[in-house]
Nucleic acid binder design. Sequence first.
RNA 1: GCUCCCUUCGUCUAGUGGUUAGGACGUCGGCCUCUCACGCCGGUAACAGGGGUUCGAAUCCCCUAGGGAGCGCCA
Length: 471
Amino acid sequence: MTVRTRFAPSPTGYLHVGGARTALFSYLFARRHGGQFVLRIEDTDLERSTEESVNAILEGMTWLGLEYDEGPFYQTQRFDRYNQVIDELLDKGLAYRCDCPKERLEKLREDQMARKVKPRYDGCCRTRQVDPDKPHVIRFKNPADGVVVVDDMIRGRMPFNNAELDDLIIRRSDGSPTYNLTVVVDDADMGITHVIRGDDHINNTPRQINILRALGRDVPQYAHVPMILGDDGARLSKRHGAVGVMSYRDQGYLPEALLNYLVRLGWSHGDQEIFSLEEMVELFDIGAVNKAASAFNTDKLDWLNQHYLHHAEPSRIARLLSPHMGRLGIDPSTGPELAEVVKAQAARAKTLAELAEISAFCYQDFEAFDETSAKKHLRPVAREALERLRAAFEMMAYEDWNPDDLKRVVERVSEELEVKMGKVAQPLRVAIVGRAASPGIEETLMLVGKEATLRRIDKALAYIAERESAA
RNA sequence: GCUCCCUUCGUCUAGUGGUUAGGACGUCGGCCUCUCACGCCGGUAACAGGGGUUCGAAUCCCCUAGGGAGCGCCA
């Protein structure tokens, strides 16, 4: 039997990290076992489902690179099938019509709460003959006694007493099918062998198994993965900032970093932290997934993102960096090759956005010197060094503007002045970058270029002169 | 309220009866060094609590506490 898994989001918002991880686990499980991964859009809630959400989910899946073999299937296109199944259940006496008014249900619920018992439908209409032409819903006739066992790949055996379960509605009064019916029909029809989903569905599972049995269909294997919490340990929500997968892209995270972060949330393989998608496919084991919820930790995501930024192909990072440069009003074609900038800077940034910020100096003059850096390095004692550097740089031909020669110039000046490299390189760095942090001084000079270097040294010299006269 | 699920450093986790309870992020200290990063080395820090079972429990059982989910004509 070929393994078939599915990811079945409801399009009522963007693809959030919790959903993305569930999708990843489903994807990995299918790939691991040489099976197929299906995408199904559960859009039966006509009120809340939107096309934008569908697109956002599709976009998120594509960005993450979670390719599905079939779908997207839309439940709204399968209403005939659901109705066929419901009618079948009705004919076989496994479901029944119910016209209990809302008021009665509410009162029932209140009474039960008052009596401290679990609120549930009392099966009032099971034995009544409800007029099919009057408004009504269809309820599934859940077995009254016995035990349903959910054998979960992550949690093990979870027995539920049927007595705890009530007769749930499978068709609304407007004729539309409900969730618990549609998942079951779809999973069965689509040949889903392993249902991997959030653990908020645990309580639905026994009911779904009962429907499956009533239908005479195979019960899939289940795996309920724990939730993802926010940094503060509370349930992930809008107030935790970015929860939508696409907002991570916008902030400059790499999909492989997010995927790597997500796979380690709840799952591990010994002490290994870095996993390529290929390795995940090879090593993933759904049975090894943790049972407890885990908190989303942006610091660790940042670390992974920096790692991937650092080790990825510079040309690819350059391509991804380009729009972030654009946001800063920079056209990368007006300066050094972006890939060269990436090579020099990638280890220094946690995100593409940060990479763009710290690289802006390669393309445009900065507004002002960073105050602390200037105070520390652009002092009168540095004037001599900057003047010598300027003179030396000015004399260099454009063809000689290379790392080795540039480094030699800086070294020579420090030797002439009999001071340490730092006394020369730091003022120079602040002069041409605007602040005290940048790649190696010769690399930095390469990126800035001769013209801007001279221009900015002049600016630094003017700054020092101003300080001197003010003193 | 009822049913179900969960509980190892701040965070992600390893651990399946015998370990100095390991790794990673963060944090702190150091090395490297022209700066910042990267990298490397080292420190800090955990078995929720209480009972059992056992020669021996993070590991097995029970209780308590805490957290979460579900109890919809939402999915």
